[in-house]
Design a binder for these strands. Structure first.
Lengths: 239, 239
DNA sequence: ACAAAAGTGTTAGATTTACACCCATGA
DNA sequence: TCATGGGTGTAAATCTAACACTTTTGT
């Protein structure tokens, strides 16, 4: 008699008998930044169980579709945008997390330039929500959102991904506002500027803000090429 | 007419029509440490497609089972151990990753004290493998292993989880060997000791190694209580 | 001239790195 | 007495953190 322990998906099993009614979905936490606050793109659920509550954007993964593909499909359908920064974060599979049955969902977050997202007519139930003061979302979506936000906090300290949330040209103040919004801390302006300028990865565009009621700030863009060419990746904080 | 974009799993769908033949599994990267090398517990696959190749330990998730539960079940079945450090890492769902059909797998890593694992008779196809010089595993398991190892590297810098791989009582040399094995770097002995001793989280047990052919080292244990009570969790490297 | 945000340097403290010798034990 | 690894301190360099005034622009 064969032990149950050796009969599993990676060894003796040839025909999968254990299929059961389960669906796989992806859910996207789409972050945006309006210059001040970190936002997330949400839709109002109209499942009767969650009527009127806010829900992440997600969909079932199709039989012939990779997980990442499904996430990109959702993102593209909702924002019209391609070529976005996206990262798989975690999978949520609590037995009763979806009222329609067992739905296991793979959570992604993505970072978009909020100005590039046109909320189309058929998407008029989509809204950008400040991540602060969000409670009471549909399903386990608050938990998913929190987990993704936590991951974003970690990543932004260690990789130059925040720039995906900014316009191509940005001021140091905008950059600092972004970090403060993501990390939910206040940072010292002089130290922040010193830090970023000393990385030598911001290109001074010799342009300035316009139409501001005060001294205009210089505009920069991030030098991704230079970053990619650097061989050493140091441990610890800082890129 | 309703747009396709609004008809999805989180909103209008009430009955899930998109069920298709898919199975969910968990795969566990079980790390152990023998005092010198980082090891992983593997089994020889005997699926005909992967005959003789090394495979992670995994199984199908049952219909009434949480993901974490499934991972703990696999771990317990294979190691006899409960109450282990375990962390979900990533989900792998490439369309053809499993020859028996669409199997989406949630990868976990766990850290066990290698001395506590008794490889039982019915488990005599289980082996501890050095993570170096491992190639050519079954399925996408090399990729899963690498991803989990990468995550372990990150976590061990920032949280006191490495101690799960050591005996309760350990010397500073063992601790350093562990870090060197996980991170695959050489560390300066004096600086390493200074760093850990200055954290003030190692309890000096006033005991020494025995039966060593040289000056015996002092033994310590990690003070988890003290760690838990500390309120501040600093950013950056170091707990 | 005023309001509002941009821009700029220095200092003290903490952390990191590099580095060499004596000590305790068993064989 | 020898071989082996255990144990220890200091100095230089780097990084972090705290902190205030002048500049530029629009109104």
């Amino acid at each position: 008699m064969m032990s149950m322990y050796t009969k599993n998906i990676n060894t003796h099993l040839v025909e999968i008998k254990s299929y059961f009614k389960v669906a796989i979905s992806v859910d996207c936490v789409i972050f945006g930044f309006n210059g001040n606050e970190l936002k997330v793109l949400l839709i109002e659920s109209d499942l009767k169980e969650y009527k009127g509550k806010w829900s992440l954007l997600g969909d079932i993964v199709r039989p012939d579709e990779e997980l990442d593909e499904a996430a990109y499909r959702v993102l593209k359908a909702r924002t019209g945008l391609d070529d976005l920064y996206m990262e798989q974060v975690q999978t949520f599979g609590a037995i009763n997390r979806h009222p329609a049955g067992r739905v296991i969902t793979v959570a992604y977050y993505s970072l978009v330039n909020i100005e590039h997202v046109e909320l189309k007519k058929h998407n008029n139930d989509l809204h950008w929500h400040a991540i602060k003061d969000l409670q009471n979302m549909a399903f386990d979506h608050k938990q998913i959102l929190d987990t993704c936000h936590e991951r974003l906090k970690q990543q932004v300290m260690v990789q130059p991904i925040g720039f995906n949330l900014l316009p191509k040209k940005f001021s140091l103040r905008e950059l600092q506002n972004l970090y403060e919004a993501i990390l939910d801390v206040e940072l010292d302006r002089r130290n922040f500027r010193k830090k970023f300028l000393s990385m030598d990865l911001l290109m001074d565009l010799n342009e300035e803000e316009e139409d501001v009621p005060h001294r205009p700030a210089k505009l920069y863009k991030f030098n991704f090429d230079k970053y990619d060419q650097r061989k050493k990746r140091y441990l610890g904080i800082g890129f």
